[in-house]
């Protein structure tokens, strides 16, 4: 959906809406957040990632929407999931939108009092310190679910949320080294607060308490992928494992060489 999935070859239907009084034209199927970004209106987000389906979990991207025939009625929606429609009038900074975002950040700051990203966003909304009781066991995890969603999207699903309510956390099954993990680091990469620890070197990589052996690129010798990653990708795509053990830079060099040879032949 994100980025306008229906925008096939630029010939899809376009919709026109206004955001803070400015006109935005986006392909049908784009979200209000997509439209805002297209015209440079900033809406804060934490759980959104362009590579993943919108989730609507962090509630920071709330905006007010209305239409002419709604007779003055407005509703607050999460812009990352709300589809852009013709004639929609979006307000990204009304009093109640700002107040709600402030409340969300106040709660996040209570959960994560020491997390720089949360502190920064909260400060932008005038929250220096949480008005709630600070979490006695501060965590950097905001439970945005990006790590588990990216893991699912890759088709690995090594980690998931565990427990519910105040005790909810992201963890591998049984809190043990996850058997399904391939050590790709996508979870750590996508984490907005960088709270998933890992170590990686030329010989080994450790994440979620599991150790992975690194594979070196047969051409340049750079250790860029784990054995499990190469096997997983090869098994899924039907492409030989050597394709994945070769690093991207060497792949490009090889490709360039192929083209040079081809043009020489021609």
């Amino acid at each position: 959906m994100s980025g306008g999935a229906n925008d096939a070859g630029g010939k899809g239907t376009m919709v026109t809406l206004t955001i803070d009084g400015r006109v935005a034209k986006v392909p049908e199927g784009a979200t209000v957040l997509d439209a805002a970004r297209a015209i440079g209106v900033r809406i804060p987000t934490l759980c959104q990632h362009e590579a993943l389906e919108p989730w609507g979990g962090c509630r920071l991207c709330l905006v007010d929407v209305t239409k002419k025939d709604w007779r003055g009625w407005e509703k607050m929606v999460v812009s990352c999931m709300f589809p852009a429609e013709d004639g929609l009038a979006v307000s990204t900074a009304t009093e109640r939108v700002v107040a709600t975002r402030k409340a969300v950040l106040d709660l996040l700051l209570a959960r994560c009092p020491d997390t720089p990203l949360v502190q920064k966003l909260a400060r932008e909304y005038g929250v220096e310190r949480t008005s709630y009781r600070e979490n006695p066991e501060p965590t950097d995890c905001i439970l945005c679910g990006l790590c588990t969603r990216v893991c699912d999207a890759i088709g690995v699903s090594a980690i998931a949320t565990v427990d519910r309510g105040a005790g909810k956390e992201v963890a591998p099954p049984f809190h043990e080294a996850p058997p399904d993990c391939i050590g790709c680091l996508a979870c750590a990469e996508v984490c907005p607060t960088e709270c998933i620890p890992y170590q990686t070197s030329d010989s080994a990589r450790t994440i979620w308490g599991r150790r992975f052996e690194m594979v070196r690129c047969p051409h340049c010798g750079r250790a860029h992928i784990t054995r499990e990653q190469a096997t997983f990708y090869a098994g899924r795509g039907g492409v030989p494992e050597s394709y994945f053990t070769t690093c991207d830079a060497c792949k490009r060099t090889q490709m360039a060489r192929t083209f040079t040879t081809l043009s020489a032949v021609r």
Partner: peptide
Amino acid sequence: VPLAKVFSVGTFY
């Protein structure tokens, strides 16, 4: 079903 999902459901309820 991924084991992580089963564990997630098992700990949720």
